[in-house]
Amino acid sequence: MNEIAQASTVSEADSQEGVLQHRSLWLDVWQQFRTHKGALAGVGVFALILLSVLLGPYLHDIDPQYLDYKSKNQGMSIKHPMGTDNLGRDMFAQVLAGGRTSLAVGVTAMALSLTLGTFVGVLAGYFNRLDGPLMRLTDLFLALPILPLLLVIIMLFRDLLRSILGPEMGIFILIVFVIGITSWMQTARIVRGEVLAIKQREFVLAARSIGTRPHRIITRHIFPNVLSPIMVSATLGVAAAIITESALSFLGLGFPSDFPTWGRLLFDGVPFLNINPARVIWPGLAISLTVLSVNYMGDGLRDAMDPRIRGR
């Protein structure tokens, strides 16, 4: 984020002076990214959601778990901007608190799966000897039925982590870990394919011929060139992680029932759809907007980072 911000100020200075200076990769990317309207809107919406989730609870300071039973099933009002649920909990406070959890799960799980996937993909693609074993491992993970695996992992480790880290942190780590290790395989496969192709290119050959060591070749020449598919997997990963967390909460395997997440709010609201539609609309909107904005950002990033599209 910082780099992009810097790049933008630099680029403005550039255009004012009209002098052609050194062009960095990130500057080019940003300039291309700016032309993608959807991506810019995505950044705006995502930033707004992030800000309101982070700062909102300081401005709207009702405890999301507090039950004010006398004011249940209320519509929108100044005191309760999104109304209340059937036990009198404030919906707005719950959506804000739920967003913190859902976004944290989404981003962390994505980071974990991305790191794992890229690592495995690059190693498998670059080193011929590792290719076979690592790709068979990937196949093995792909062949595992995910849901039963999740159930077993959670059943085995829930109590242990709960006693070490407490109920909320324990289940957070467990969920992030579980989503992370079950969603890295696609990234690994895509990255491996890209690495295999780039490895044969002349610039890599040149680097190798002057004696550059493998880890330098990977970080300096190969990694920047496979960044584009990684970024796309990242954005899709955030969305998938948020939705997987909802599914786990739905099965009663996620966070405790009174700990709001967007998925749980949505699940709890469904039976009340006829009576109080706002209970479903707000968390649903939050999930949709987040997923949509992240996808648009990914779309824009992919275009911006592909040198063949850039500049057109």
Partner: peptide
């Protein structure tokens, strides 16, 4: 079951008033 989870949440708050901390768990 949503009724049971509602009851759990209500009881949790009633117990909070007497200084008892409650962690909720629900199983299929």
């Amino acid at each position: 079951n949503s009724v049971r989870q509602g009851t759990q949440a209500l009881i949790k708050q009633m117990w909070q008033a007497i200084g008892v901390e409650t962690e909720l768990k629900n199983i299929s």
